[in-house]
Computed example of a mutant assay.
Amino acid sequence: MKANMLAPLSLAERLADLAVDALIDEAELSPKPGLVDRRGSGAHGDMNLALMQASALSLWPCLRQMAEAAQRIGHIATPLRAELGRLGREGEAAMLVTTAGVNTHRGAIWALGLLVAAWALNPADSDPLNVTARAGRLALIEDPAAPIADSHGLHVRRRYGVGGAREQAQQGFPAIIGHGLPQLLRSRSAGVGETPARLDALLAIMAALSDTCVLWRAGEQGLAVLQQGARAVLEAGGSASLAGRRHLRALDARLLHLNASAGGAADLLAACLFLDKAGSL
Rank of each mutant, 00 (worst) to 15 (best):
R186K: 10
A236D: 02
E235T: 13
R186Y: 05
S210K: 13
G193H: 01
G229N: 02
Q221L: 14
I205W: 02
T212Q: 10
C272W: 13
R217D: 14
V192G: 11
G222A: 01
E235W: 13
D252W: 00
E194I: 11
Q228T: 11
G244N: 00
E194W: 07
A201N: 05
R231A: 15
C272F: 00
Q227I: 01
D200Y: 07
G229S: 10
A265C: 02
D252I: 11
A243Q: 07
R186Q: 13
D211N: 05
A270E: 09
T195C: 04
C213K: 15
L226Q: 10
D252L: 09
A265W: 00
V225P: 15
L226C: 06
D267P: 04
S241D: 01
D211K: 00
L234S: 07
D211S: 12
G264D: 00
A265K: 00
D267W: 03
A230P: 03
G229Q: 00
A262T: 01
G263I: 01
R249M: 09
C213D: 14
G219Q: 05
A207V: 02
A224Q: 15
M206R: 04
L256N: 09
A240T: 12
G191H: 02
V225E: 09
G191C: 03
R231G: 09
S239V: 03
C272I: 11
R246I: 14
L255I: 04
R186S: 11
G219D: 14
A207Y: 08
R254W: 07
Q228M: 00
R231Y: 07
E220C: 10
L248I: 13
L226G: 05
G222P: 01
A232E: 14
V233T: 06
I205F: 01
A265F: 06
R246K: 10
C213R: 12
L202T: 08
Q228E: 07
S261M: 13
A262R: 10
L255D: 05
L242P: 03
R246W: 03
R198D: 13
V192M: 09
A253V: 12
R246S: 04
G238C: 13
G263L: 13
E220M: 15
R186C: 05
G237K: 08
G264V: 00
L258K: 05
R198Y: 14
I205A: 05
L223V: 00
Q228D: 04
